[in-house]
Amino acid sequence: MRSLHTYAKLIKFSHTVFALPFALAAVTLAHMEKPLTIPTLFWVVLAMVGARSAAMGFNRLVDVRFDRLNPRTANRPSVTGEISVQAMVGFVAGSSLVFLVSAAMLGPLCLKLALPCLAVLFGYSYTKRFTAASHMYLGAAIGLAPLGAWIAVTGSLDARILLLSAALMTYIAGFDILYACQDVDFDRSIGLYSLPSRWGIPRALRFSEALHATTVVCLLGLGLAFQRGRIFYLFLCVIAGLLVLEHWLVRPHRLNHIPIAFFHVNSLVSILLLAAVWLDVLWPT
């Protein structure tokens, strides 16, 4: 159990709450097109966990020299020696295998897309070395989750689900910019790229606000595209309010509120989005 806790700490397993609800929302919408089976749901969730674990483990592996120098990340298991390099390589390989097997169980198309998906996820770990657009890349990579979940259930692509992927992309990129505000001085000193270190915190925060406004617009478009009812739009109003609260909490002179905004507010946004879709499908109005 101690070892399991250490690996969960390594990949911040609790942060799965940010993207998994979006994928499950896509599964719920796909269920209206093609009835969902329990095995499909199981393999979708396992694929999500495998892909995220592999990506996070790979990130910790290639970033260990930076994490060792950053006071904020110096206590990560990959830095302290709680998990060896060999163990991290094994963890990434094992998680990747879980993802590939899950994709195979979801059908030939999912299996064909699995390796390119892993390549995109792994690629994020290098983006901060050369571009301040790393936040957008991260959002785009994680934004594949609803698209993959839809394909897993229906076996085909529907352009409407891209609105949910776009919502997740802008949502992730927006709060990743907020998170990066904590490392402005370190990033500048070590030569890493981020919008806060490149543009300054005030401008980066305004860009984050624009991204989260786009999130709300995308979710509104999703509701219209799938002809959702009043329950969905009621929850959407709450989600919009939470995003406004997040940006009220995090100001250039209030960066100490970033942990609250990052985990507590954002986890509520994801959970409420899933509840909005699920309840609206369950009780259509």
Rank of each mutant, 00 (worst) to 15 (best):
D63I: 05
F186E: 11
N256Q: 15
F235S: 00
A74T: 15
T131V: 04
A19G: 13
L272G: 03
I177V: 14
L113K: 08
A55L: 11
I38T: 14
T285C: 06
I11W: 02
R254Y: 11
I271W: 02
C110K: 09
A225R: 03
R251V: 03
M48P: 02
P77N: 13
P252C: 12
R228S: 11
A149E: 01
I231R: 06
K112A: 14
D187H: 12
A119Q: 12
M32K: 15
P284S: 14
S208M: 11
N266S: 07
V27S: 04
A204G: 08
G57K: 02
D67H: 12
C117G: 13
Y233V: 03
I258T: 15
L243Q: 04
A119L: 14
A141Q: 03
I38E: 12
N256C: 12
L113D: 08
A213I: 07
A19S: 15
A204C: 05
R198D: 10
L192S: 09
I83G: 03
G174S: 10
H212M: 10
N75S: 13
Y179F: 09
A19W: 00
T6Q: 14
L144V: 01
E209P: 01
R60D: 07
L69F: 09
Y171D: 07
M56H: 10
L118T: 00
I151H: 00
V217F: 10
G191E: 06
E33D: 10
F207Q: 02
A8L: 14
H264R: 15
V27M: 07
R52L: 06
R203E: 14
T40V: 15
L268T: 02
A19T: 15
A225T: 05
L168T: 01
V79M: 07
K112H: 13
Y179V: 09
Y193T: 05
F66V: 05
R68C: 12
G81A: 11
A114M: 08
H257R: 14
F226L: 03
L10Q: 12
R230D: 08
P21C: 00
L109A: 12
H212G: 02
L36Q: 06
E82P: 13
A204N: 08
Q182G: 05
V89L: 15
Y193L: 05
I177E: 01
T285L: 15
A210C: 12
T37C: 07
F42C: 13
D158K: 07
F66S: 04
E246A: 07
F263M: 14
S84Q: 05
D176H: 04
M56F: 05
H264D: 14
F262T: 00
L224Q: 07
L36S: 09
F122S: 01
L242K: 07
D67P: 04
R203T: 12
S165K: 00
R52P: 00
L268G: 03
F130G: 05
V250T: 11
M88I: 12
R198M: 15
G221T: 06
P35C: 09
N266G: 03
L224R: 12
